[in-house]
């Protein structure tokens, strides 16, 4: 049953305070849709989207975590397997911005050392309710040496760009190897299992 639907599998993770729009950002990217009703994510969920970068078909397995503290033990066990982490805050919610350092600390504690990080200031369509200036987001991103985008899942601003940029950054670090069939590994804390290749009959 040898068949190759993609060349590489990248595992990404979305983290950030509850209600900042992680699920909406992902839903916009994976399904190009937006839903205004707020449904809190239970623990952990994922979506798959295949993109093409530099002639390579890259399957993005994107893990969406619950922002609520009560799911913390579940969500942190998924940090280890991530190759890229998107830290999302809400530009209309100062607390979500203040908590960035807490989330960065979580990454340091639970993720791989070489994980690609990215900061997203979501809900940038809500300019009238903005409390976090764009410059503040840029500054904290610069301080930690990570990329930064202001996004809007609702208005579809910078969503695809953010995901593709993160995927490109990971691709740049990926050692060149023969394309092969990768596995969709859904176990938590699986380390580099996403990279393992498998010989197909």
């Amino acid at each position: 049953m040898a068949k190759k639907t993609y060349d590489l599998l990248f595992k990404l993770l979305l983290i950030g305070d509850s209600g900042v729009g992680k699920t909406c950002v992902l839903f916009r990217f994976s399904d190009d849709a937006f839903n205004t009703t707020f449904i809190s994510t239970i623990g952990i969920d994922f979506k798959i989207k295949t993109v093409e970068l530099q002639g390579k078909k890259i399957k993005l397995q994107i893990w969406d975590t619950a922002g609520q503290e009560r799911f913390h033990t579940i969500t942190t066990s998924y940090y280890r397997g991530a190759m890229g982490i998107m830290l999302v805050y809400d530009i209309t919610n100062a607390k979500s911005f203040e908590n960035i350092s807490k989330w960065l600390r979580n990454i340091d504690e639970h993720a791989n050392e070489d994980v690609e990080r990215m900061l997203l200031g979501n809900k940038c369509d809500m300019e009238d309710k903005r409390v976090v200036p764009k410059a503040k987001g840029e500054q904290i991103a610069r301080e930690h040496g990570i990329r930064f985008f202001e996004t809007s899942a609702k208005a579809n601003i910078n969503i695809e760009k953010a995901f593709l940029t993160l995927a490109e950054d990971i691709l740049r670090k990926t050692p060149v190897k023969e394309p092969n069939s990768e596995n969709v590994d859904i176990s938590s804390g699986g380390g580099v299992t996403g990279w393992k290749s498998k010989c197909c009959s």
Partner: peptide, 19 residues
């Protein structure tokens, strides 16, 4: 929490299989 973790893992496994 452990039970929830297992249920979510199974859900995600089935979701991946379905995909």
């Amino acid at each position: 929490m452990q039970e929830l973790k297992e249920v979510l893992q199974e859900r995600n496994q089935l979701k991946a299989q379905l995909m």
